[in-house]
């Protein structure tokens, strides 16, 4: 039976999706526009796609972005999930303080975080600027998102199952693996998606923590507005989005295995 509320929510979701995809459709259309300035339609072309294929700088930057974002996602998901679980499960000393600290990277203006981490890396820890420093910096502002998402999911988790497993001789780690983790999966996936997205698009923190070998896409793109955003960027985004959606759909229709 279809109820009014699911009809309403369905229509609403379609509207929200349309809102989310308006600019994306536009940039996809403009990836075939022959004008460089991205403002008005001047004719169909595929030259930006052709140029993109040989644009080593953009492609390398894109690859670097993916490397940083993947590593950041992995680390943030680990830190955030384990942190949320432990803080829920046990009563640590200074727990309230810990809860506050987790929010600091979220509220801290990016430039403060970027510069203070730069000074920390260069003058105190002696880590050369590059992928490592960038991944550390990105993880620092990404993991709270995972932690908060997982925490929300943990609210009201019935501990009796976990207790029962432990009573049956499972170690806390085993019970976590078998019971808690599957339950937390939707939150972990949400957190991972958010981390990946945040890292992929970060500019200011990246400026201060990157080295010349780890230039990511936002760093290469930032000044481009000066001469008009390079339409190759539209092409790159279009390919990436189309590919992601295609892979996701293929996975959906081929594999019956549920992801979440």
């Amino acid at each position: 039976m279809i109820r009014i509320d699911s009809l309403f929510c369905g229509a609403w979701t379609i509207a929200v999706m349309a809102f989310l995809y308006i600019p994306i459709v536009l940039l996809m259309v403009f990836s075939f526009n022959s004008s460089r300035l991205n403002l008005s339609w001047e004719g169909f072309t595929t030259k930006w796609y052709e140029a993109l294929l040989t644009n080593r700088v953009l492609l390398t930057a894109f690859q670097n972005s993916l490397i940083v974002a993947s590593a950041t996602t992995l680390l943030s998901t680990l830190l955030g999930t384990l942190g949320a679980w432990m803080l829920y499960r046990y009563r640590f000393p200074f727990q309230r303080l810990l809860g506050l600290l987790i929010f600091i990277p979220m509220v801290m203006p990016e430039v403060l975080m970027g510069v203070s981490l730069l000074v920390l890396f260069v003058q105190f820890l002696n880590i050369p600027l590059g992928f490592t420093t960038m991944i550390i910096a990105h993880t620092t502002f990404c993991f709270p998102f995972v932690l908060v998402a997982v925490q929300a999911r943990l609210q009201g988790l019935d501990p009796s199952q976990e207790e029962a497993a432990m009573d049956l001789g499972a170690t806390p780690l085993q019970s976590f693996w078998k019971i808690t983790l599957p339950f937390l999966m939707p939150a972990i996936v949400s957190g991972a998606l958010m981390s990946f997205t945040l890292s992929l698009d970060e500019y200011i923190v990246s400026v201060f923590t990157t080295g010349s070998q780890s230039q990511t896409l936002p760093l290469k793109v930032y000044g481009m507005a000066k001469v008009g955003l390079n339409p190759q960027l539209n092409a790159l985004s279009s390919i990436f989005i189309a590919a992601t959606v295609a892979v996701a759909l293929a996975g959906h229709f081929i594999g019956k295995k549920k992801i979440l």
Partner: peptide, 23 residues
Amino acid sequence: VSVENYASNEEMLSKLAAGGGDY
């Protein structure tokens, strides 16, 4: 050649002054 970019003189200055990067 490796290229690193900045968007303002001061971004460059703060990074240089902090001793970051081998430029």
